[in-house]
């Protein structure tokens, strides 16, 4: 599993034309591979091209040149409908602004991508209710977004991103609008998605505190990937400790400890070693988008 890159970027460039003879190069020929189950962080100052890069990975805009290959399929070759389907069920987007639909209640918001997929209402609601349990907001299912705190809204948004059981979660500054407690909750949730359900998570953040929990850090600067750091810590250091550290902002938060304790560390360490070993190898093109209707990513967090 780990040998197949989930996402492969080849010479990815993006240029914005702001008028005649006035071009801004947002990305300069970027290359990388991301493997299944990895927790990746794009880290860098504002304007370094992280969000532009993410939006191209998410199929929200085409690159000026270069290719995005997701599970062996070039996004540029997908038809409009397939791109919609890709955004709907192969990736899950989490935004800084939460971006919930204000006129719909929590349950409807979470189930919306499934509705776009033409799923039956009963099934959608069942699944949305299950995910609400996962993000611990079951009691808010009939609330509208305006009645929720920022942290709660973001957890609803994460639940929404999971509704179609996607391969990859893409989170663009998910904690940017949150207080530190809510931010920690959200980051914990994303980490557990990566660790427990072995989902690929791509995180964009400003906050260096979170870097220690990621598997690899793509340091970006001026539209280039400056450096790719493999986080030795997540592999070597006891994960229980590292997550506990995250929780140490509030030391007596018992939940944080129990959360950490549940991670299967040995398992994760193996996976991560595997990832690092395969990074030098040529990527093997894996499963195609079209034959993955059923969704291949791991089971949801069931608790």
């Amino acid at each position: 599993m780990a040998k197949i890159p989930v996402i492969k970027a080849i010479n990815l460039s993006k240029t914005f034309k702001l008028g005649k003879d006035n071009e801004i190069v947002a990305l300069h020929s970027v290359n990388f591979e991301i493997y299944s189950g990895e927790l990746i962080c794009f880290f860098g100052p504002s304007g370094c091209g992280k969000s532009t890069l993410l939006s191209m990975l998410a199929g929200l805009q085409p690159p000026t040149s270069g290719e995005v290959i997701v599970r062996g399929k070039n996004l540029a070759e997908l038809k409009k409908k397939q791109i919609s389907e890709y955004r709907r069920s192969k990736i899950g987007m989490v935004f800084q602004q939460f971006n919930l639909i204000l006129s719909m209640n929590v349950l409807e918001n979470i189930a919306l991508p499934m509705a776009f997929g033409g799923m039956k209402r009963k099934r959608r609601i069942q699944r949305a209710e299950h995910l609400l349990e996962v993000v611990e907001l079951s009691e808010k299912k009939k609330s509208i977004p305006a009645d929720l705190s920022g942290g709660q809204q973001q957890r609803v948004a994460i639940a929404r991103s999971l509704i179609n059981n996607p391969w990859i979660i893409m989170a663009d500054e998910p904690t940017g609008n949150l207080d530190s407690k809510s931010a920690d909750d959200v980051i914990k949730l994303l980490i557990s998605l990566s660790r427990k359900s072995k989902r690929t998570v791509i995180l964009i953040t400003h906050n260096p505190e979170y870097l220690q929990y990621t598997d690899r850090i793509f340091r970006m600067k001026d539209g280039r990937i400056d450096k790719i750091e493999v986080n030795a810590k997540t592999a070597k250091v006891d994960l229980v400790d590292s997550v506990a550290k995250l929780g140490s902002i509030k030391e007596d938060d018992k939940e944080t400890y129990s959360f950490g304790a549940e991670l299967g560390e040995a398992d994760i360490n193996d996976t991560l070693k595997d990832i690092r070993l395969t990074q030098g190898e040529d990527a093997q093109v894996g499963g195609e988008i079209s034959n993955l209707e059923e969704g291949e990513a791991g089971e949801d967090l069931k608790e």
């Binding site: 709907r88 987007m93 971006n99 776009f116 991103s161």
Partner: peptide, 16 residues
């Protein structure tokens, strides 16, 4: 407009 952007980003197609 923003809401439409959200809908498209989470997989709503143009026809819908």
């Amino acid at each position: 407009t923003h809401e439409i952007g959200v809908m498209k980003a989470i997989g709503g197609n143009s026809k819908d």
